[in-house]
Design a protein around this nucleic acid. Structure first.
Lengths: 148, 148
DNA sequence: AGTGAAAATATCTCTGG
DNA sequence: CCAGAGATATTTTCACT
């Protein structure tokens, strides 16, 4: 992980479709050299994939929320399985503290959110926070990672 | 937003570097036709960008946490400005309820987390949940979006 | 909006330093 | 580990439907 690889990661984080020759100009290397570096970063699992970023609202999902779930002791496995099946769940965190799980969910309407929460209520006590805005959405705090 | 565009969005969500000719085969269209559709999706803001997905651990950020912040009434603006400056903040949600903000943060060590929380404590009461695993990480619940 | 073909770029492979 | 050259594939532009 030299300075060039950091530059490549930052560039690919900002534009996942950047061509190898573009990247090459950025780091003053030839396209094949960049391709080789990127291939190795993928192999090592540093880069796990590439994805288009989509606007949730424009794609018909105007409502997002964070749902804290205090899962009943005996229902942990069932809860995990349920969450994996629900398409509405965008992110799921298994965390320390009384709320063992925090979900980020996206729905088309409040009634759909209601349905979703009913689904969860059998296995956990939930606390829902509606997301009003998201001032920060990085995929990676790269400035931190790179420091020493 | 016809069926073909949904297919393109799903494909690009799964592989943001897919070529137009690959996508063309998938939806039975020529490469230029696909390029035109994708260009329009970008113009309309449905696709907001492309990004490489990176493995936080392998990039030197082994610790992630959710931090709920009950911001002091008079400090909301200052808090927002602070959060925008902190590289450790990966995501920031402005939500309903007593915890006005929920942050997802990534750090290199627990001592760095401590430093970060000290930073926030002047402007808010915080509650920190360490992330132990993340069983789901989609960018988009597309199966939901598409339905009727 | 989409196709098909030609021109311009980009990528891939391989040889060599 | 990288540069350069040639072969291959992809993107882009354009005339036409």
């Amino acid at each position: 992980m030299d300075a060039i690889n950091w530059k490549l990661l930052k560039a690919l984080e900002g534009n996942g479709r950047a061509s190898f020759s573009e990247l090459g100009k950025l780091v003053h290397l030839s396209a094949p050299a960049v391709a080789e570096r990127v291939r190795k970063l993928e192999e090592k699992g540093v880069i796990t994939g590439y994805s288009a970023q989509l606007n949730l609202e424009k794609v018909g999902i105007p409502i997002t929320a964070l749902v804290e779930c205090q899962v009943y002791r005996t229902k942990e496995r069932a809860f995990k399985n349920l969450v994996l099946e629900l398409d509405e769940v965008i992110e799921c965190y298994n965390v320390t503290g009384p709320y063992a799980f925090v979900l980020k969910v996206g729905v088309k309407s409040m009634s759909k959110l209601d349905e979703l929460l009913e689904c969860l209520i059998d296995l956990s006590d939930t606390n829902t926070m509606m997301i009003m805005s998201q001032p920060v959405d990085r995929t990676m705090p790269l400035n931190i990672a790179q420091k020493s």
